[in-house]
């Protein structure tokens, strides 16, 4: 098999894996948009906040230590414990639920019946607030996130592909784990929304707020529920991306990678977030591989948006988004 074709296959596989990582971020956007029509600008910051909290809890870091030390003249930094990974993840998930309750009580409740742009602006404010809160609570230094996920080349994939093609493909073990987690996450979300009472209520609210309210579904409960789920999805995305680069404030920028995925897959479809991520991942990697060297490289950021825009020309609602017809 020609060498270039083998390389293209390797790039495609890695593109699929990168796409899964983008989808993990996009899923959080979709969940909130689907249930409440809010484009949550703070989704990237939620992932950052969740990852910061996870590392802080895991390492027994004292939140607000810098402030406490400045105010009381103490020198506190750590509780002196190391929490097991699963306990730390569970506690972080609880923190995200608490955050969802606070967001509903302090922000969303006061903005019922406001135009979507107002809600969008509120999430911008929320993003800045959470970024600052994360900084004050846990500090701005880079933190190593170690929840036991494997990283580095998959020896199995390398040796199998080497025996078949005479060239060992590179696949990162972390990407393989991310793919498995994304599949489990989507399956769980689908089962939850199809077969549980709360899931059906969530779908009802997504379809029609007024009708859902008229049959006794609590909009406030649904908002707390959906922000909690989005918080959990953000935690998963934060773990995957934070393992890759360390937990630091640039983690919030992963939202930029999710936007073209949403434009392409549609803002209201969970499968759309996955398929959109895969198309963007493969598209940008193959373009960089084949065309990049001819035009100076670094094409991935803009190519993802260009690809999404091309799709929008033909399907303005995205591949799987709901077609909204508004009559005058």
């Amino acid at each position: 098999m020609p060498e270039q074709l083998l390389y293209a296959m390797e790039v495609t596989l890695n593109g699929l894996m990168a796409g899964v990582m983008y989808s993990l971020v996009a899923l959080g956007f979709v969940l909130i948009f689907k249930a409440s029509g809010i484009f949550n600008y703070a989704q990237g910051v939620l992932a950052l906040f969740a990852a910061l909290t996870l590392v802080g809890l895991q390492n027994g870091q004292i939140p607000f230590a810098h402030l406490i030390n400045a105010a009381l003249g103490t020198n506190l930094h750590s509780f002196g414990w190391k929490l097991p990974v699963l306990v730390a993840i569970a506690l972080t998930a609880l923190v995200m639920v608490g955050l969802a309750i606070l967001i509903e009580k302090l922000v969303l409740k006061h903005l019922v019946n406001q135009a979507p742009i107002i809600l969008f602006m509120a999430t911008i404010g929320l993003a800045y607030f959470l970024e600052g809160l994360g900084d004050v609570m846990w500090g701005a230094d880079i933190k190593k996130l170690d929840v036991g996920l494997p990283q580095g080349i998959s020896e199995t994939v390398e040796s199998v592909t080497d025996s078949i093609f005479g060239y060992g493909f590179f696949i990162d073990n972390l990407d393989i784990v991310a793919t498995v987690v994304a599949v489990l996450l989507v399956a769980s979300l689908t089962i939850f929304s199809q077969y549980s009472k709360q899931g059906r209520a969530l779908r009802a609210v997504a379809d029609d707020h007024q009708a859902a309210l008229s049959v006794g579904i609590s909009l406030r409960f649904i908002w707390v529920l959906v922000w909690s789920i989005a918080g959990f999805v953000a935690l998963v995305a934060g773990i995957m991306w934070g393992t890759k680069s360390g937990v630091q404030f640039s983690l919030s920028l992963i939202a930029l990678k999710a936007l073209p995925v949403l434009m392409l897959g549609g803002f209201t479809s969970i499968p759309g977030a996955i398929v959109g991520g895969l198309i963007i991942g493969v598209g940008e990697k193959l373009f960089e591989f084949s065309v990049g060297p001819m035009i100076g490289g670094a094409t991935e950021n803009w190519f993802a948006y260009m690809l999404a825009l091309i799709f929008l020309v033909f399907r303005p609602q995205g591949l799987f988004g709901e077609k909204i017809i508004e009559r005058v």
Binding site: Y7, N14, M17, A18, K244, S245, S250, E288, F289, E300
Partner: peptide, 30 residues
């Protein structure tokens, strides 16, 4: 590598393919 540089798979696959003897790196941040 485009800023911020959280995703560099393409560049490192290229390094793996082309096997340079040395990589000189001019990065900042993440």
């Amino acid at each position: 590598i485009d800023t911020p540089g959280q995703e560099q798979k393409s560049q490192w696959l290229q390094v793996r393919r082309e096997k340079p003897d040395y990589v000189i790196f001019w990065g900042w941040g993440v």
